[in-house]
Amino acid sequence: MTAAPLPDADAANWVDRRAPARLRPWLKLGRFDRPAGIWLLMLPGWQGAALAAAMQRQAPDLALLAEIFAGAALMRAAGCAYNDIVDRDIDARVARTAGRPIPAGQITVRQAWAFLAGCSLAALAILLTLPPLAIGLGVGSLALVAAYPFMKRITWWPQAWLGLAFNWGALLGFAAAAGALRPPAALLYAAGVFWTLGYDTIYAIQDLEDDALAGVKSSARRLGAAAPRAVAGFYLASFALAVAAAWSAGLSPLFLAPAALAALHLAWQAGRVRVDDPRRALVLFRSNALTGLLLFAAFAAGGVPWR
């Protein structure tokens, strides 16, 4: 017998269909029933590693990519648990989040802290295998992560703060591959911030009414009917910065074809987003895994000599 999925989880997600019943609340606490967030946290790290390798005309290190994937999955789970601990009272008043394990009474706050600690220690074990600069960057990201749940209480732009946190992996992945930071890494990080600002504004459309009732701020609420145009602007800035990163890194023209596909996908999203269609907003948000993969492929291809 399968459990009812949470509103923002796919109806066929593996947690509700396959996982043992007693493990489901824990897997849902870590959002393993909603893997889009793992991709969106992981892909900037992959892009950073690919960009650093491409500057040396090398392919991305597969072992490093595997470490970034595992670390992103663990830290996303820890971050979601922390977010749910902090937001448990707000989540109980929002229809989309009221069924989450803590507000639903399936997991206690103390148990959630234990889950967070376990995931964080496992991620730390992976981080410690990387070069010193990457370790320092990993530790430095904790301040951004710790502050994020409070941003929706104090600013209309928590999505921008999420961009700062979620794309830190671009710097970490670059540093892990190159042992240093260079200007292309900073441009890639800035591109990611605008990308996240766009896709998380789309995501926030789902909660416009509930957020207003709960007093929660978001870029979607602040922008209102102008949100689709703003998303288009955020995506344009993101793509321009990604191209600037490739240009400053001296990548080959082979970067251009997959990058153009990423640009078309961003334009498709911006053209379809509607503030009165939350279901479509979730579909568009999830599709950003493809955008990130295309940009990763573009940076990897840019490391192949043109002649």
Rank of each mutant, 00 (worst) to 15 (best):
A178L: 05
L181V: 01
A177K: 03
T155H: 10
M151N: 06
A190P: 00
R153N: 12
A190S: 07
S141F: 00
L162D: 11
A175T: 03
A175C: 10
R153V: 05
L187Y: 12
A191R: 09
Y189E: 12
S141I: 00
A177D: 09
M151A: 15
L171V: 02
L144C: 04
P149R: 06
P158F: 02
A180C: 14
L162F: 08
A160Q: 04
A176Q: 10
L142H: 05
I202V: 11
W161I: 02
A143H: 10
Y189R: 04
W195I: 01
F166A: 08
W156H: 12
R153G: 10
T196E: 14
W195K: 06
S141D: 01
G192S: 03
W168V: 09
A170D: 15
I202N: 11
Y148A: 05
G173T: 05
L187P: 03
R153A: 13
P184Q: 02
F150R: 13
I154R: 13
D200L: 04
A190V: 00
W156Y: 08
L144W: 00
P183H: 03
F174R: 04
A147T: 04
P184W: 00
Q159Y: 06
V193Y: 09
A146N: 08
A186R: 08
T196P: 14
T201F: 09
L197I: 07
G179R: 01
A186K: 04
R153L: 10
W156Q: 13
G163S: 07
K152M: 12
V145P: 03
R153E: 14
A143P: 07
A178G: 05
A146E: 10
L164N: 10
L188R: 11
S141N: 04
G169W: 01
V145C: 12
G179P: 01
A143L: 15
A191I: 08
L142W: 08
F174L: 07
A191F: 07
A146G: 09
A190G: 05
A191M: 11
F166R: 02
T201E: 14
L187C: 11
I154L: 15
Y189K: 03
G179F: 01
G163L: 06
Y189N: 09
L172P: 00
L197V: 09
F150V: 04
A165T: 01
D200S: 07
A180V: 14
Y199V: 00
A190I: 00
A175I: 01
Q159A: 12
A176W: 04
Y189S: 08
V193C: 15
A186F: 15
F150A: 15
R153S: 12
F194R: 03
A176G: 05
W168C: 13
A146L: 14
Q159E: 15
V193I: 15
L181Y: 05
Y148C: 03
W168S: 14
L172F: 00
L142A: 15
L144N: 04
V193F: 12
L144F: 02
L144M: 05
D200H: 06
W156C: 09
F174E: 10
M151P: 02
M151I: 03
